[in-house]
């Protein structure tokens, strides 16, 4: 039994999104969808968060930021890549400064495709993440690391 699934707190970071996905993320957090029903809170601070929502692709400028935010989220944590940009780099993939999807820098647990990802699928992604969160918690209790040591190892 874990309470993680009952109170998942989110931190949202805009890597180099076109803002399309960001707006959808925020839409999912509006009173219309009222995610607080599920105990979800949008925190502004990685140190309070459990779920890391990332939109947009990674570039040289925000790589350390992404990494830093990730590192400041206490375990157990899950990363949800939102939109095709975060997944693979999307239409920016070939840009001179773009590295690709965020899994080039940090380990990703859930990919939510779409350009832009719809609020429903974002919520769906978060729900999937909850399952992974619970598993990670269990792994943590049994001891041992919950995330791959290096980014990109899963691929």
């Amino acid at each position: 039994m874990t309470y993680l699934t009952k109170s998942p707190w989110i931190v949202h970071y805009d890597c180099s999104s076109c803002n399309g996905c960001d707006i959808e993320v925020l839409a999912a957090l509006t009173p219309v969808y009222d995610v607080e029903r599920f105990g979800i809170i949008n925190t502004g601070n990685p140190k309070h968060a459990d779920i890391f929502l990332v939109t947009g692709s990674v570039n040289e400028q925000n790589k350390p930021v992404l990494k830093n935010i990730y590192e400041q989220i206490p375990e157990p944590k899950v990363v949800v890549a939102i939109g095709i940009c975060a997944t693979s780099g999307g239409i920016f993939r070939e840009c001179y400064n773009v590295q690709g999807g965020i899994d080039k820098v940090i380990p990703v647990d859930v990919y939510v495709p779409g350009c832009a990802a719809r609020p429903e699928s974002i919520i769906d992604g978060v729900v999937t993440a909850l399952g992974i969160l619970a598993k990670k918690r269990q792994a943590m209790q049994e001891g041992g690391s919950t995330t791959p040591a290096k980014a990109g190892e899963g691929r």
Binding site: T2, Y3, L4, K6, S7, E36, G39, D50, P76
Partner: peptide
């Protein structure tokens, strides 16, 4: 949220690193 949500939150926080 459910009325017991604050308790869920705190119990969750204790589960964290």
């Amino acid at each position: 949220p459910p009325v017991l949500q604050p308790f869920y939150d705190v119990l969750k926080l204790f589960e964290k690193e």
